[in-house]
Amino acid sequence: MTEKKPIKTTIPEHEVMKPGHLACQGCGASLAMRYATKAIEGEAMFTLPACCWSVIDGPFPYSSLGLPLLHMAFEAAGATASGIRAALNMLGQKKVKVIAWGGDGGTFDIGFQAISGAAERDEDILYICYDNEAYMNTGIQRSSATPYGAWTTTTPVKHFEKRPKKDMVEIMAAHKIPYVANVSVAYPEDFVKKVQKALSMEGFKFIHAFAPCPSGWKIKPEDTIKIAKLAVQSKIFPLYEVEYGVKYNLTVKVPNPVPVLDYLKLQGRFRHLTEEEINIIQKGTDENWDLLMKKLENK
């Protein structure tokens, strides 16, 4: 056997998150946490609202995260992170980063007022939302992050989700905070770079991470990365960043876009859709993309 070239890793090699955690097979949320913790240099502290990660982390007295962590009530992630920041500042620990880590339910719906308040006060924290597009931890109930056409247990096939997904990144960018970005688990280099950039800035930062959920989306566990990639390639989830609410930058370009059908047909939650409904999704996706392109030109 010939000598092999050394393994060159494109993301930091050290592991902070420990194995043995309780995520499902092929979980996008655990992958997102792995990338986020890799990006942290120096000391950091986490706070979690109720979300999948409250369970994944492990029962008391165990924690698989490898960093200090405070479990908090569903609606309070933004407020708790502000409180931790204030307490650390009082103790003279200004260098310790405070990171709030919530699911889409705790960010888009229930925790929205606390996040909006923290963003308006421009607290020096980083909020990362891992978005699996429904309340997965409690059994796949619809959230305001659920996209048009999706099946959930509260929007069954006969009355499937009729409203488009809430555009959280634009809402946060409208707060004129220093940094807002979209990341995806299929692009780890982009993910780590954006978290590092956010942690190097002062003020409120918001990162929206796309994390497929095999059990909730009715996909095969091995397709997690493939689907996250297709979401970017079909323009459903563009990867871009916004600085101070005005400076737009597209970080992952899509030279050869694929139709949304490629993304939808792999997922059991979209199985009931007819051609007409798929056309509605395609039209909505194209409109959103054109809008984003206009914003990119205005930078």
């Binding site: 420990k18 194995p19 043995g20 309780l22 008391f60 007295p61 698989s64």
Partner: peptide
């Protein structure tokens, strides 16, 4: 937390 979850062989 007193330990990590590496005793839990998934």
């Amino acid at each position: 937390s007193l330990a990590d979850m590496t005793h839990n062989f998934t």
